[in-house]
Design a protein around this nucleic acid. Structure first.
Length: 848
RNA sequence: GCGAAAGUGGCGGAACUGGCAGACGCGCCAGACUUAGGAUCUGGUACCCGAAAGGGUAUGGGGGUUCGAGUCCCUCCUUUCGCACCA
């Protein structure tokens, strides 16, 4: 047998898999399917170990399921549009198309060298016109249904990336990509009406039983549903103007002693004009608006505000109250205005104290009025209403219902639900993305590009201005078109789509990636979808996953898919750290998989990354751990070598047929089947790939010990040693049991270390390859121990252990356990007082 | 501040339903084979007392339930993650 040279094996088997199209699949309704997907990659240039971990996790699942008899779809593709390529182009002058294609080629090679079992014939890149054509198609379909619409809006603007950001892309007041503080700008923008699905997206999170609770919580918080009421305040001396507020505590409205407007509120401008000093007014508003988002990064904002001079009328008390502008009131949540109840809201309380505004207690625990100056902070608990007119004495909950009903009756408000989730702004003033397929005509207004003219191909541009206007606007032949309706002169939309649009439905396209007539054939999607196992970084817990859930519903309502949830099981894998930090070029702590591959081969790397910790957990990279995994594979290699000639022969019965196994043989057999049980469960149910590996390591250790004990003195101790094979083993039972163990081991190793496993499988005399091989079968009878060691307690302390049969049988202990008073059992020379049996198992005995 | 998860050897981690805590691996120690060993094989490796047999203590601290607790309950501490003026 040759030495273990994994680098040679990698090449050999990767070529064979490619030649035999081993991982290409077709829909086959006769077979159960398994759609295994890892989040596709942004082609940044080089995959580091952190990225690669995710693909290995998916590959272990895919390969296992294949061997378990499933028709497995395991595709990969490229999230190829996006800012970095364009930013790089501005610097280097290399066209994004060129750099992206080069990056894809390199990264694809990396993944292939790792032996990830992708169906490469289904590969796609979102920058292919054949792909983004369907972005455009979908956009128009959404436009037709009112799910895509255009409006002028104040948007998040990143002054560094020079583009608009979705709300989801603003993190701590900064750009999600570069961290630069975000500014606001008014632009005409396209939006997707994701809020139309807000309730459904929220409620159906409970159906996602195989998603991490953490991700569901994040999504629920993001959607942010709150029940309350909209109430309309009048304006004193101005019959026609009303100020709508949203509140979750309408029961406290008798304590609303002032009204607060956000700086962005539409009425603020008019109140400014009417004020004594409009110039100063405007200045203060402007200060709030610019301060707002920037200040949020540094944490707390000191509450600021000023009186507009206007007085609103509380519709319940009919009392005039001052209207202030406050920096902490959010312009884009609710109505952008709130009724301030300082006694029962901490923010209002602080504001009232600072500006000496009146405070009035209207809810107390005991239903007795309290003076306001007894408060040291807001009392925001529910209780009984006081000093609230006809509502006094009612509990908060009841008062909320009655007040909302009354408001509705008098047309001054109603119960309503407010979401934090906002419509998804998708316009980007950037080049490297999907052109939005819309045309603006003087006469006909907004007209979609006719479907048969799609795709609107992204023109080749060589100027990527960093100035912030759309590069496409500088291409006259792109911009100037004829109106599809009147054939008069018209202009194209020059913005491109947010790249999150691309990634919100790519998993459907994989089911039918070369379809030129539709985004996908519904029949194919019906077979393959939903994705059974989806894995990726937790950083996509909100954006990508909520958009994908939204798109699934849009496709559903277009009649193209029949499910709502696209991903059945989600696994969020942990990051790979080096020296305690996330790998990044700037930190110089990147572990390059290719270097590791050259040194130890793909299998050692794969095995190590799976073994070091459970998939969800972050791991700290160590070179010595990788070496350990290599050693393990070499150890398996020597083991198979040692037994190979003995065991590979034909015509040997299975151990079941052997009448008399020795205790050692029996024990090995039990270990084999126990390992099958553990490895299978760890991969399929528990998704605990690290313990699956350690179970296999235990089996290998057991096989070494068994070999040592059985006849031959164990596997080669030195690579160059003249190996004495186990050829002289006489007992056919020994050979059967060892063969069973070794074959099971190699088969279970295949998902983790496929190249090594294939080679060993071939050595064991199988010429059909592992791709079509079946997972070893678990025999529960064999795996069951027939004896069990139980603790013996004396006076509540464990004083020893005894070995008893697993099935207690009808011996004395059994009868004691059943409470037979006529029986005395003895263990270790003592009388048994009590036997504890739990779940059918003898668990311990208590002696006096 | 609110919410969630988690605290186990020198390190990564295991313990699945409450049942021999520390599987498996890294590291370290010893032995074998060696010109050599950063290869390989074998043995050891939580802590304390003890030459040993053996005994005692241990899963962040404190309390509780139980024959029995890393696991369940209460409480405190710490860490990580998420949300953070959402009215």
């Amino acid at each position: 047998m040759p030495d273990y040279k994994p680098q040679d094996l990698d090449k050999k088997w990767q070529q064979r898999w490619a030649q035999s199209r081993a991982f290409e699949v077709e829909a086959d309704p006769a077979r159960p399917k398994f759609y295994c997907l890892e989040m596709f990659a942004y082609p940044s240039g080089h995959a580091h170990v952190g990225h690669v971990r995710n693909y290995i996790i998916g590959d272990v699942m895919a390969r296992t399921k294949r061997m378990r008899g499933y028709n497995v779809l395991h595709p990969f593709g490229w999230d190829a549009f996006g800012l970095p390529a364009e930013n790089a182009a501005i610097k280097s002058g290399i066209h994004p198309e060129e750099s992206t294609r080069a990056n894809i080629a390199h990264m694809k090679g990396q993944l292939q060298r790792l032996g990830i079992s992708y169906a490469w014939e289904r590969e796609l890149a979102t920058c292919d016109p054949e792909y983004y054509k369907w972005n455009q198609w979908l956009f128009i379909r959404m436009f037709e249904r009112g799910l895509a619409y255009r409006r002028r809006s104040s948007v998040n603007w990143c002054p560094s990336c020079k583009t608009v950001l979705a709300n989801e892309q603003v993190v701590d007041g900064g750009c999600w990509r570069c961290g630069t503080p975000v500014e606001t700008r008014d632009l005409e923008q396209w939006f997707f009406r994701i809020t139309a699905y807000a309730d459904e997206l929220l409620n159906q999170t409970v159906e996602l039983t195989q998603w991490p609770e953490k991700v569901l919580t994040m999504q629920r918080n993001w959607i942010g549903r709150s029940e309350g009421a909209r109430v309309s305040f009048g304006v004193e001396g101005d019959e026609d103007t009303r100020i709508d507020v949203f509140t979750t505590r309408i029961d406290t409205i008798f304590g609303a002693t002032f009204v607060l407007l956000g700086p962005e509120h539409p009425l603020v401008g008019r109140f400014g004009e009417q004020s004594a000093d409009p110039v100063a007014f405007r200045k203060r508003i402007q200060a709030f608006r610019t301060q707002d988002r920037a200040a949020r990064i540094s944490g707390e904002i000191e509450k600021e505000g000023f009186d507009t001079g206007v007085r609103a009328v509380n519709p319940f008390t009919k009392e005039p109250v001052p209207v202030w502008v406050a920096n902490f009131v959010l312009g884009d949540y609710g109505t952008g205005a709130v009724m301030a109840v300082p006694a029962h809201d901490q923010r209002d309380y602080e504001f009232a104290r600072k500006f000496k505004l009146p405070i009035r207690v209207v809810v107390t625990e005991d239903g007795r009025p309290r003076p306001a100056d007894s408060l040291t902070e807001a009392a925001d608990a529910y209780g009984t209403l006081v000093e609230s007119g006809e509502f006094s004495g009612l509990p908060s909950e009841e008062a909320q219902k009655k007040m909302a009903a009354l408001a509705r009756e008098r047309s001054i408000g109603e119960a309503t639900v407010q979401f934090r989730l906002k419509d998804w702004g998708i316009s980007r003033q950037r080049y490297w993305g999907t052109p939005i397929p819309m045309i603006y005509c003087e006469k006909d207004g907004i007209v979609p590009v006719p479907l048969n003219e799609l795709p609107v191909v992204l023109p080749k541009v060589n100027e990527f201005s960093g100035r912030g206007d759309s590069p496409l606007a500088q291409v006259p032949e792109f911009v100037n078109v004829k109106c599809p309706k009147c054939h008069g002169p018209a202009r194209r939309e020059t913005d491109t789509m947010d790249t999150f649009v691309d990634s919100s439905w790519y998993f459907y396209r994989f089911a039918d990636p070369r379809n030129n007539d539709m985004p996908f054939d519904p029949a194919k999607v019906k077979y393959w979808l939903p994705v059974d196992f989806y894995s990726g970084g937790v950083e996509h817990a909100i954006l990508h996953l909520i958009y994908s859930r939204f798109f699934a519903r849009v496709f559903r309502d277009l009649g193209l898919v029949d499910h709502s949830e696209p991903f059945t099981e989600l696994l969020t894998q942990g990051m790979v750290l080096k020296d305690g930090a996330v790998m990044s070029k700037s930190k110089g702590n990147v572990v390059d998989p290719d270097t590791m591959l050259q040194k130890f081969g793909a299998d050692a790397l794969r095995l190590y990354v799976m073994f070091v910790a459970p998939p969800e957990k972050e791991i700290e990279w160590t070179d010595s751990g990788l070496k350990g995994s290599f050693s393990f594979l070499a150890r398996v290699w020597r083991l198979v070598d040692h037994w190979n000639e003995t065991v590979a022969g034909e015509g040997i019965d299975s151990p079941d047929a052997c009448d008399s196994l020795s205790p050692d043989e029996k024990a090995l057999r039990r270990k084999t089947h126990d390992t099958i049980r553990r490895v299978t469960g760890d991969i399929e149910q528990r998704k605990q790939l690290n313990t699956a590996v350690s179970a296999m390591m235990e089996l290998v250790n057991e096989l070494y010990a068994f070999s040592e004990k059985t006849v031959t003195g164990g596997p080669a101790r030195r690579i160059d040693e003249d190996v004495e094979h186990a050829g002289q083993v006489e007992r056919k039972e020994t050979i059967c049991v060892v063969r069973e163990a070794i074959e099971a081991l190699v088969l279970m190793l295949a998902p983790f270390a496929p190249h090594t496993a294939e080679e060993l499988w071939e050595m064991l005399g199988h010429d059909d390859g592992l791709t079509g091989a079946s997972w070893p079968e678990f025999n529960p009878v064999v795996a069951k121990a027939d004896e069990v060691v139980i603790p013996v307690q004396v006076n509540g302390k464990v004083r020893g252990r005894v070995t008893v049969p697993t099935d207690i049988g009808d011996d004395e202990l059994q009868r004691v356990a059943l409470g037979d008073p006529g029986v005395q059992a003895h263990v270790a020379g003592k009388t048994v007082k009590k036997v504890v049996v739990a779940k059918g198992r003898l668990v311990s005995v208590v002696v006096q």
